[in-house]
Nucleic acid binder design. Structure first.
Length: 749
RNA sequence: UGCCGGAUCGUCUAAUGGCAGGACAGCAGUCUCUGAAUCUGCUUAUCAAGGUUCGAAUCCUUGUCCGGCAACCA
């Protein structure tokens, strides 16, 4: 779209903007918009402004401005000077006066309720209020007194004078300004009237020379108003509003209202709670900004509402972290192991690689090994399930980077729970495979005497349902995942990690990716946040014994065939004598439905038939397809094609001078500039070639030139026929007789 | 029920009227001192019915379903 605008000369450079309102924190949905806007600017070597849409003094403040700037910078984008809508108030005011002078805006002194009542409904037109026809002079006077502070809040508003009967409610004299005696965080008391979004936003864009104003789908119905403001205020440039679908992510919420409620009511620890999808939360959790950017790229931009699977984000997180996260050992839920064949006082320092073979990084650390160890409680099972690869009585596992260990005995507490494992290490297995047997599993561990106690915060999805907040019957709070935060206060980590650069993202082997909490972690009491888990193939296997998943939801079967006679629209159309007359002339009923429904179209058809002398059925088909398409974007009268010219075109088709596909190209040009069809055909060399030997040569050339594709076709990929037809048509400049080409190809292939 | 949008694998997203492709997820296998990663292979989609066309996800018609819109919020 932008390419088109540039090509058409509508713009010479691209300017976009990201326009947050400073009344909340940015979340990953905003990140999508930021990446889009800044990304387009980067792609086209244009620029993207960061502009605060601060036109409502009641909810906005400076701290949000700072937080938002920090978030955008963190994401990795740069901009010139930060812009503020509140800097344009004077400009907006002047343009409002211009509207008043043009008779396109007026001061309305009715109450909010009266205005709402008179706006009408989707079924009824609105009614004019008592003040709609005030004189320009009176409006100007009132408006300047509004600004001067002579009136109380709500006493007057400035409204655009557009159309109270407009089918789009937003066009029914929308409010432009309201009185608000409030202190603005930047302008203080200097203004007491504030512009509304629909008025302010287009002017902000125009003021900054924005070319493409990207916003979310719900503003679609605002576009006519946006265009109206740009046009009628005679704005310095003509920005174009383009809508796209906002991001919806499963298992979380992305609405300002919900996020605010979670924070205000203390369901989370603050805007930067690592469970929140806010950029502040994601950052504190340890997420890399590049992952957010990659995720934004991955989800794409479209105009269809959709919900992106949280799993996609998690994939990017893991994928970006794996190559940069050193691997270390940390036991979350410790269970004591005594290596009975290891001397009491002896500690060996083992060299252990920080990186797996598939990561192109090098480095090792010293890992202590002693008689007492911690292993993960979950890695031991008294009665192992089928397929268990870990420790159980009598069984062996590999201790990562160390020895193969066998469990000989289990010590239990009064309740029978295991409290200590007595094990034997096979001392011949350091950096060596055990002899005569396979040890299926490897587990992580930490030497008890050198372990550092730490706190681990395990974050999971904030909600346990896929689409929280969509069930009207209950509060979204009931959908919170009670296990979204699990704190392991007694975790043990290997000593090498302590004292490292706090921004390091670690992989705790077999657990996930972690980073020290930037707020709560101290050298004496390290605290780590889990960024994301590792993919877990075992729990999947272990839980698979459940009853078989329900059959995929039944695909909507074929809908019942339309019975033409049951469609009321068609029924009435067919009762029409015009319809009957068309059918009598040979036009098929479906096409007749289309023509009979529109008088202008019918007249056009008649004109074309008269000129072409061709079969009315053929003319009707071409009118019903080609002309009707053009009328989607403009009125029939605005199409520079006369019924006569169209009749000429159909004549060319009817007598075989041009093929149907060439005729479409011809029509496209006619529709653009009204050129005579005969001239186009001559000019572009579209006269249909039906000479078998001439076409045969072209077909042979194409077949010879695409040997690989020919082989695929012969191997059964018959869909390629269309590809070959296309190639031949292309080679002939669009003049070949397609039906004949097809025949020839079929014979050759 | 007025206006405006939208509909392609389970999910997200591509395809000047010419090979329905990619990613995630899933499945199977490979490998493994991380049940991770890697590697290999596989399954799965054009909302429906008509029409136009040599050829339709794409154009036309009708219908179905979904979303948005009636704040002195943005």
């Amino acid at each position: 779209m932008i390419d088109e605008d540039l090509a058409a000369g509508r713009h010479t450079r691209v300017v976009t903007r990201f326009p947050p309102e400073p009344n909340g924190f940015l979340h990953i949905g905003h990140a999508k918009s930021i990446c889009l806007n800044f990304g387009i600017a980067l792609d086209y070597q244009g620029k993207c402004n960061l502009r605060f849409d601060d036109t409502n003094p009641l909810t906005e403040n400076e701290s949000y401005v700072r937080a938002i700037e920090a978030d955008v910078r963190w994401l990795g984008f740069e901009w010139g000077a930060t812009a503020y809508a509140s800097d344009y108030f004077e400009f907006m005011f002047e343009r409002a006066e211009l509207l008043i002078r043009k008779g396109l805006a007026y001061v309305d002194s009715e109450t909010q309720d009266e205005i709402a009542a008179k706006r009408g409904t989707i079924h009824e037109a609105g009614r004019a209020g008592a003040f709609r026809d005030r004189s320009v002079a009176e409006n100007l006077d009132l408006f300047s007194r509004m600004r001067a502070g002579e009136f109380a809040d709500g006493a007057h508003v400035l409204r655009a004078k557009i159309d109270l009967a407009h089918t789009n409610l937003l066009m029914r004299d929308p409010l432009l300004y309201r009185i608000r005696h409030a202190s603005h965080y930047r302008r203080g008391e200097s203004w007491c009237i504030y512009p509304m979004y629909d008025y302010a936003h287009p002017l902000e864009d125009a003021y900054e020379g924005v070319t493409h104003s990207l916003c979310s789908l719900e503003f679609e119905t605002h576009r006519p108003l946006y265009d109206w403001v740009v046009r009628e205020t005679e704005a310095p440039c003509r920005p174009q509003q383009i809508e796209f679908a906002r991001l919806v992510l499963s298992y979380t919420v992305l609405s300002k209202r919900y996020l605010m409620q979670l924070v205000k009511e203390g369901h989370v620890s603050g805007w930067d709670d690592p469970r929140l999808p806010t950029l502040a939360g994601l950052r504190r959790r340890g997420v890399l900004p590049q992952s957010i950017r990659r995720f934004a790229d991955m989800v794409g931009v479209a105009r269809a509402n959709s919900t992106v699977d949280m799993g996609k984000l998690e994939f990017v997180l893991r994928d970006d972290l794996s190559p940069i996260a050193p691997r270390v050992l940390c036991v979350l839920d410790p269970l004591e192991v005594v290596v009975t064949n290891w001397p009491e006082e002896r500690t060996d320092w083992l060299d252990a690689s920080l990186w797996p073979a598939d990561v192109a990084m090098e480095g090792t650390r010293r890992l202590p090994f002693g008689r007492r160890l911690w292993i993960e409680r979950g890695d031991f099972a008294e009665t192992p399930p089928k397929g268990w690869h870990r420790l159980s009585p009598g069984a062996e596992v590999r201790l990562r980077h160390a020895y193969v260990l066998r469990c000989d005995a289990v010590e239990r507490d009064a309740s029978g729970a295991a409290v200590r494992l007595l094990c034997t290490a096979d001392l011949a297995t350091l950096n060596a495979a055990p002899v005569g047997r396979k040890v299926p599993g490897t587990i992580h561990w930490v030497a008890a005497d050198h372990a550092v106690a730490c706190e681990i915060r395990l974050y999971d999805r904030l909600f346990s349902t896929e689409a929280p907040g969509t069930d009207e019957a209950r509060s979204f709070l009931t959908e919170l995942n009670p296990a979204s935060l699990v704190v392991m206060r007694d975790a043990k980590i290997e000593p090498s990690v302590v004292g490292s650069d706090p921004v390091t993202r670690w992989q705790f082997e077999r657990q996930g990716y972690f980073q020290a909490d930037p707020v709560d972690s101290t050298p004496s009491r390290p605290v780590f946040n889990r960024i994301v888990t590792l993919k877990d193939g075992w729990t999947k296997v272990a839980t698979r014994e459940e009853p078989a998943a329900p059959a995929p939801r039944a695909k909507a079967g074929p809908q019942p065939a339309q019975n033409p006679v049951t469609s009321s629209k068609r029924l009435s159309a067919r009762a029409d004598p015009t319809h009957a007359a068309l059918v009598a002339r040979g036009v098929d009923v479906d096409t007749a439905d289309v023509l009979a429904a529109d008088e202008a179209l019918l007249a056009f058809f008649d004109g074309a038939v008269a000129r072409s002398a061709a079969d009315p059925a053929l003319v009707a088909r071409w009118v019903a397809n080609e002309i009707v398409r053009e009328t989607k974007t403009r009125r029939l009268a605005d199409i520079p094609v006369t019924p006569q010219a169209f009749g000429d075109l159909v004549k060319l088709i009817a007598d075989g001078t041009v093929s149907a596909s060439a005729a479409k190209d011809v029509f496209a040009r006619m529709a653009k500039d009204g050129t005579d069809p005969g001239a186009i055909v001559a000019d572009a060399g579209l006269r249909q070639v039906s000479d078998a030997s001439a076409l045969g040569a072209v077909v042979d050339a194409v077949v010879a030139g695409h040997a690989a594709d020919v082989a695929r076709y012969r191997a059964g990929k018959t869909q390629l026929l269309g590809f070959f037809v296309g190639k031949v048509l292309q080679a002939s400049g669009g003049s070949a007789n397609p039906a004949m080409v097809r025949e020839l190809l079929l014979a050759r292939l």
